[in-house]
């Protein structure tokens, strides 16, 4: 099996629509052992949702902005497994004012929150788990991205946060490469999750995606993205690090929606 005996830490499961939920389900089906993390009031929801996975996993508390939670997470995993083969970072947040509104009228405090939770946390979580990844012989860190090479309607400061995430992933790849850890992002097409529905105007991006993507795109199906994450967690991309892998139906490669040939 693709992920037989892999010990994986998966953040970002809020409900069954969460990209991370599909990752956890597929990973378990592929033989992995999984620990989920949950955050704040959402922790209770994550605990409920965990029971819907094929093999209900433990849920540990992790607010990525709480250093104490990082320490407790590392301590728990050290005791539980002594090593970690894979980490999925599927965490993002921006205050409403930083999204779908007035880009030029967003306060630094709100931008800072977005960057703290959505960008810096990737480096922080990687650092937290570095010794455990090393103990596993390297392992794989995978984050969730939305193509940040272009500006989008509504995405606003989250787009800036994702551009920072892309750069952060390259630096973490640089620093963890020597211990054999691969660090990559999956740039997903738009999916109707709680996070995405919180972005007023995101529907405009959703609408055109299917027309632009040569392979088509289903905004209600996170499985293609989750499969891509699982591939990066597996041993089958052993020389790939510092990459953004697009799981978007191919939309990023096409300049404008192309009508079907008549």
């Amino acid at each position: 099996m693709l992920l037989a005996d892999k010990r994986l830490v998966i953040t970002g499961v809020l409900n069954e629509q969460s990209i991370a939920f599909s990752v956890a389900r597929l990973a378990q089906e592929a033989g992995a052992q999984v620990v989920l993390t949950g955050f704040g009031r959402g922790l209770r929801i994550t605990e409920r949702i965990a029971r819907r996975l094929p093999d209900p996993p433990p849920v540990l508390e992790l607010d990525v902005t709480e250093p104490a939670h990082h320490r407790a997470l590392a301590a728990d995993l050290e005791e539980r497994w002594g090593a970690v083969d894979g980490v999925v970072h599927a965490v993002a947040f921006a205050p409403e004012t930083a999204l779908g509104g007035d880009f030029l009228d967003t306060s630094w405090d709100d931008v800072a929150t977005a960057l703290r939770v959505s960008t810096y946390s990737f480096a922080e979580l990687s650092a937290t788990l570095t010794p455990l990844l090393r103990a596993a012989g390297g392992g794989s860190v995978v984050g969730l991205d939305f193509d940040a090479t272009r500006a989008w309607p509504a995405y606003d400061w989250m787009g800036v946060a994702k551009a920072g995430l892309e750069a952060t992933a390259r630096y973490v790849a640089r620093d963890l490469g020597p211990q054999g850890t691969r660090v990559n992002l999956v740039a997903a097409g738009p999916l109707r999750t709680v996070a995405a529905k919180g972005i007023e105007g995101f529907a405009d991006i959703e609408r055109s995606w299917g027309e632009q993507a040569p392979l088509g795109w289903d905004v209600t199906d996170a499985e293609p993205v989750a499969r891509t994450v699982c591939a990066l967690l597996s041993d089958w991309l052993p020389a790939t690090t510092g990459m953004v892998v697009h799981a978007d139906g191919g939309a990023h490669a096409i300049g404008a929606p192309t009508p079907p040939a008549s």
Binding site: L14, N15, R41, R44, I45, R48, V194, K197, G198
Partner: peptide
């Protein structure tokens, strides 16, 4: 909205009926 997500899960578990996100909203 976060409570509503949890409410639909709890209702599903207690009453065996699924509420879709769109319906909850």
């Amino acid at each position: 909205s976060l409570d509503l997500v949890e409410f639909s899960l709890a209702a599903e578990e207690e009453l065996g009926v699924r509420i879709e996100d769109e319906e909850a909203e």
